[in-house]
Nucleic acid binder design. Structure first.
Lengths: 160, 160
DNA sequence: GTGTTCGTTTAGAACGTACTGAACGTTGGG
DNA sequence: CCCAACGTTCAGTACGTTCTAAACGAACAC
């Protein structure tokens, strides 16, 4: 059976997001919502378009909603609701990486506490890493702000 | 059975690195090498200290070596070699995140190509994300350089 | 009040992955 | 030459995870 280009794209996004910790099925859902037409789709549409069970779509959407990647909007005529990806979904996802850095920095701190003498040569393997992650932790939020301000400015200019 | 604080630390690093895509066992090895005494350890030492099979340690070390996180050095008296963590191991790991960003940006580009009209309102969900990841991709290397220069300067001052 | 459609939950099956243990080189000493 | 120590490879097992399918619940039409 031949898959449409859209469908294949969704599959690829699924694979990529799976490698980043999400499950393939949920990644597929997100990938599909990025390119589908119309951009808002019902559970039944998603289920049949992607060949996933209703159950998978239902729980998947809840997970994606919880992560702030997708939102459900009331469907005007029909009963129930439809889902659509938030315009900043992937940005949300990327920004969250900062939390990982914090976790690693904490691990480095704990390791240093274990070595007992932070300044000994033995502790170097941990010191450099701790300083690095502390640096990243401090700078990344600045970077995100910088993007926000630069981006809206560019948008205002009306040119890419 | 009671685990030493060092051993437990290694376990925790294993769990954390597992959540980042590495296997628990290999993460444990890295965690142990960050705090063990002496800092250089043989395969047999690692195997018995961490309760891992020789096989796991052998392949694990090769993987970590391949990633640039660990190096093997010739043992002076005895036969064979010993392993030690590189001082910049975790930095190496963190810096590699940039590649993920590039992959996501490419996915966004491909999605835009699929929508066919980059400037349509429909394409907004992808445009913003693409621009974001392009921005990150451009800025992160600068950030890494900045750390390198700032850090060696601080080290030179002899004060933290 | 009853029937129908839409959505959720959960038990279970299928799958992939991580780790072990044992067999197999390989290198140096007596 | 033979033995011993050290490391590697690989088949198999045990485990967790992901997805499905079917039972269940809720909301609206008539």
């Amino acid at each position: 059976m031949e898959l449409s280009r859209e469908r294949r794209y969704a599959e690829e996004v699924g694979v990529k997001l799976a490698s980043l910790g999400m499950t393939p099925a949920y990644g597929k859902l997100l990938g599909w919502l990025l390119i589908c037409d119309p951009p808002s789709q019902s559970l039944a549409q998603l289920s049949s378009s992607l060949g996933l069970s209703k159950g998978s779509v239902s729980t998947g959407m809840r997970v994606l909603e919880r992560l702030g990647l997708v939102r459900r909007v009331a469907a005007p005529g029909t009963r129930g609701h439809v889902y659509e990806v938030t315009p900043t979904a992937l940005i949300e996802l990327g920004s969250r990486a900062g939390e990982q850095y914090a976790a690693i920095r904490e691990l480095m701190e704990r390791g240093l506490a274990l070595l007992d003498d932070e300044d000994s040569p033995r502790a170097e393997r941990l010191r450099v890493s701790r300083d690095f992650y502390a640096f990243i932790e401090r700078e990344v939020p600045k970077l995100l702000d910088q993007f926000k301000t630069e981006y809206v400015r560019k948008e205002g200019e009306g040119d890419g």
